[in-house]
Amino acid sequence: MPFTIATWNINSVRLRMPIVERLLKEHAPDVLCLQETKVPDELFPEKAFRKAGYEHILFHGQKGYHGVATVARRPIELVEKRRFCEIDDSRHLSVRVQAGGKSVLVHNFYVPAGGDEPDPEINRKFRHKLDFVYEMNSVPASEDELSASILVGDLNIAPLEHDVWSHKQLLNVVSHTPAETTNFEAMRKAGGWVDLMRLNVPAEQKLYTWWSYRAKDWEASNRGRRLDHIWSSANLVPSFKGYEILQEARGWEKPSDHVPVIARFDLD
C-alpha cells in the first residue's frame, strides 16, 4: 500500500467530526492534516480520532479561531509549532513521520485569509497575509538521501490563472491578486518546493478545492478556487503517484467549504 497524506480545512473539527470520521473510514489516509480546527488544545476530540484508529495526534489550537492538527495511523514526532509574524495564532505545525526508509518532515499550514480589501495600507489582515507568506521563505524543502519534506494546508491563495473560476473577474479579489500570487509562487520556488497538484495536470485545466457557502448551488455554478495545496521536496517526485480532490465531500452533511485532497506516494 502507498503512503497517503490528506489535507483538509475542516472549519471546526468538533462541529464536523462526523464527516471527518467518514473520510477516515472511507479513505484511511496514513496522515491527515487539518486546518481551521477552531478548538483549544484541551478540548480537541482525541477520543474520536483514537476510536477511528488514529492513535498519533498533535495539535496547535486556540478557542474559536484558526488552529491546525495532524493525526496519523503511524507514529509522528513533533518538530515545531512555529509562530509567524510574531503573532501566536496557531497557524503552523510540523511533524516527522517515517515512510519508505525516509524521515519525512510534514508542515501543516493555515495561511491567513487576508480580509476583503486587497490593500495592505488600509487592511491590516491583508498586510498580515503578505508578511506571513514572505516569512514562509524561511521554510525550505529540506531533503537528503534519508529525508524529505512535504508541505500541505489551506494556503488561502489560488496562484495560477486556472486555479480560479475566472482569472479576469478575480484579479482584484483577495486570494488571487497579483500581490499574493507573485510572492506566493516566488516563495514556493525559492524554497525548492514542487507543486504536486500541478505536476501532471496542465496549467490550462481548472482545479478547485473550495466552493463558497454563498452560492445557492455550489455544484451548478462551480465557481471554485484552489486554495488547498500539497507540495514536496524534489526527491519525493519520483515516488509521487497522484492525488484525489474529494469534491463530493462538499455535498456531505454540514460540509466545510473546503474539500479534502489526498496525495499518494510509493514509499512503503
Rank of each mutant, 00 (worst) to 15 (best):
K189S: 14
K189I: 06
T181A: 01
L155I: 09
M197C: 05
V194C: 08
L160E: 15
R188P: 01
L207A: 06
E185W: 00
N156H: 09
V164R: 04
A186R: 14
Y208S: 12
N172P: 00
L199M: 12
S166H: 07
P159G: 06
K206N: 05
V173S: 12
S149Q: 06
S175I: 12
N156F: 11
T209R: 05
T182Y: 03
N172K: 15
E185H: 01
V174I: 13
L155C: 09
A190P: 00
G192Y: 04
L207H: 02
W193V: 01
T177H: 07
R198E: 04
K206M: 07
L160Q: 11
S175E: 07
L170G: 00
G191I: 05
D154G: 02
N183P: 00
I157S: 09
A158G: 10
R188I: 13
N183R: 15
K168N: 12
G153S: 01
W193C: 00
Q169F: 00
H167I: 00
N172V: 01
T181Q: 06
M187W: 10
V152W: 03
S166E: 12
K168I: 11
A179Y: 08
W210I: 02
V173W: 00
D154C: 02
M187V: 14
A186G: 01
D154V: 04
I157L: 05
V173E: 09
P159K: 06
G191S: 08
R198D: 02
A186T: 12
M197S: 01
V201G: 06
T177L: 02
F184V: 06
N200I: 04
G153P: 01
L155F: 08
V201N: 09
E161T: 14
V164C: 13
Y208F: 15
V173F: 03
E180Q: 10
N156R: 11
W165T: 09
H162S: 10
A158K: 07
W165K: 06
E161V: 13
F184H: 10
N172C: 09
W193I: 04
V164K: 09
M197R: 06
T177Q: 07
P178R: 01
T182D: 13
L160C: 04
E161K: 15
L171F: 00
D154A: 02
D195S: 02
W193M: 04
V174K: 04
W165N: 10
A158E: 11
G191E: 02
G191R: 03
K206W: 05
N172D: 14
T182N: 10
G191A: 05
T177Y: 05
W165D: 13
I157K: 07
Y208A: 14
R188C: 08
L155P: 08
L196G: 02
N156K: 12
K168S: 12
T177S: 09
I150V: 15
F184G: 09
Q169L: 13
